[in-house]
């Protein structure tokens, strides 16, 4: 097993120093931010590490791990809302999306016995699922609101022809979903060629055979892909429902046009 020890960590801080030097040299004014980010990341990781050490002791109930998953879902949902405040009701939608994604993806991985359900597997897999879905979840909500706002005339022209709201919104929901999903599909395609993903790298550094690491990584990639597809779909359909009334009117998303 690879272990770098405290001295290794201290030496790796030299790389932070490189970033600070670049900031000073090019007068970017980012030195304090870089230092703060490095220290904050270390502190957060230590806190998580200590908590994991406690949870991974033999005899600890898996209920604590599930509680951890719930906390991650809640924090991720608040983060999504914070990043896209223009999307109405996003906190509730994000909660529903992450819960749906957790039920589906973790259900497949643990329900079908791909991974054995225990504290050691549940927390990292749930973390990967939620963490990797976050950006796409924000993106799809933002994109759909922008599309329906910017193409309001077109959407209303469809409604004026007697199309129901879900049909009128379909081209824009489709566009937003494609925008959010394509980067994840591209990342999945590039795995192994351009990037060695984190889970696999971590396992290899920890001494696991590369073949086993690859198997875990592939399962993780599929987990992320399934999760991104689930969260983005729930968000897109939820946002669509919120932006239209039950009598098929598009709510006002911007200031009124003249003449109204």
């Amino acid at each position: 097993m690879t272990s770098i020890g405290w001295s290794g960590l201290a030496l790796s801080l030299l790389l932070v120093l490189v970033a600070i030097v670049v900031s000073l040299w090019k007068q970017l004014g980012l030195e304090r931010s870089i230092l703060w980010a490095a220290l904050r990341a270390a502190a957060q990781l230590f806190a998580i590490g200590l908590l994991l050490q406690v949870l991974l002791r033999p005899g600890v109930s898996i209920g604590w791990a599930w509680l951890w998953v719930v906390a991650m879902v809640v924090i991720a949902s608040f983060t999504v809302r914070q990043r896209a405040p223009e999307v109405p009701g996003l906190l509730q939608l994000a909660l529903i999306a992450f819960v749906c994604s957790a039920v589906l993806t973790l259900g497949v991985l643990f329900g079908l016995g791909v991974f054995q359900l225990n504290v050691r597997t549940l927390i990292p897999l749930a973390g990967l699922m939620i963490g990797n879905s976050l950006a796409a979840t924000v993106l799809v909500g933002r994109r759909l609101v922008e599309e329906l706002r910017d193409k309001r005339d077109e959407v209303e022209a469809r409604l004026a022809l007697g199309q129901p709201a879900n049909v009128a919104a379909k081209p824009y929901v489709r566009g937003a979903l494609r925008t959010a999903l394509i980067p994840q599909i591209e990342t999945t395609k590039a795995v192994g060629l351009v990037v060695l993903p984190g889970a696999m790298t971590g396992l290899i550094l920890a001494g696991v055979s590369p073949l086993n690491a690859v198997l875990v990584q592939a399962a993780v990639m599929y987990l992320v892909l399934g999760s991104v597809a689930t969260t983005t779909t729930v968000i897109a359909l939820g946002v669509q429902r919120r932006l239209f009334t039950t009598d098929h009117r598009l709510l006002h998303l911007t200031s009124a046009r003249s003449g109204r």
Binding site: D153, E154, E156, A157, R158, A160, R257, G259
Partner: peptide
């Protein structure tokens, strides 16, 4: 209804 700006799909 026909709108202010043309709305071709």
């Amino acid at each position: 209804m026909v709108f202010q700006r043309p709305t071709p799909f």
